[in-house]
């Protein structure tokens, strides 16, 4: 394992790091963190179990086991990454292993929301660019500087125009990805909404 884990906090605008490529479409959250590791009341120990079964199957040859990837922090994946179960344990495990940002062809919706909620920006790039990056990573180290403000990733000799939902980009830049306090700012509006909803009125015997 790496140096001690510190969760992201506040504004997130720049990330620099080495890429780690993981090839495959439809990689589901059961694979990212098998269900038996969900028997926990905190997320602390999940990092070491990320991709546990896939890693065991590949006997040390899984990208997350390769010595050259041990300091990587930008995960590069293919399409529909994180499909399946809503377990936040999946991005939590990736984050605790050392992943700080993910670039992929596409992401499953719930996985994407979970990543935002814990401070992992997910960017998309066209299939061709992803494959280009993945091929490059197979042979040599690729370091990227990600500039969230301009949605740009720079390597030594290429630039990539990253895509990210505008609302997500803004949330990272302002720190509002950690949503609780922003949501609570509208305390009165929440109360009003509660009082207006028809079913709150007719469900008076609701438990």
């Amino acid at each position: 394992m790496k140096s001690e884990f510190t969760p992201p906090i506040g504004k997130i605008s720049n990330m620099n790091g080495q890429c780690i490529s993981l090839i495959g479409n439809d990689i589901d959250t059961d694979r990212i963190i098998p269900a038996r590791f969900l028997k926990c009341v905190n997320f602390d120990s999940l990092g070491e179990s990320v991709f546990e079964d896939d890693r065991k199957t590949l006997k040390g040859k899984h990208p997350f086991d390769l010595e050259e990837n041990k300091n990587a922090s930008i995960l590069v994946v293919n399409s529909n990454f994180g499909c399946g179960s809503s377990r936040e344990h999946a991005p939590q495990a990736l984050m605790r292993w050392g992943i700080k940002a993910i670039i992929g062809e596409s992401f499953a919706d719930i996985f994407y929301s979970n990543c935002i909620a814990i401070g992992i920006p997910c960017f998309t790039l066209p299939k061709k660019s992803i494959e280009e990056i993945q091929n490059y990573c197979d042979n040599q180290f690729l370091f990227l500087e990600i500039d969230l403000k301009n949605s740009l990733a720079k390597s030594k000799d290429s630039n990539f125009n990253l895509e990210i939902k505008e609302s997500s980009r803004k949330m990272f830049l302002t720190g509002e990805w950690d949503a609780t306090s922003t949501l609570l700012d509208n305390k009165n509006l929440i109360e009003n909404k509660f009082n207006q909803l028809p079913y709150i009125k007719f469900n008076t015997n609701f438990l």
């Binding site: 936040e88 719930i110 929301s113 909620a117 814990i118 949501l183 609570l184």
Partner: peptide
């Protein structure tokens, strides 16, 4: 939803 969103629903119902 994921766990951080469970937290937000508990805390804000939104």
């Amino acid at each position: 939803i994921g766990t951080s969103q469970v937290r937000d629903v508990l805390a804000t119902q939104t």
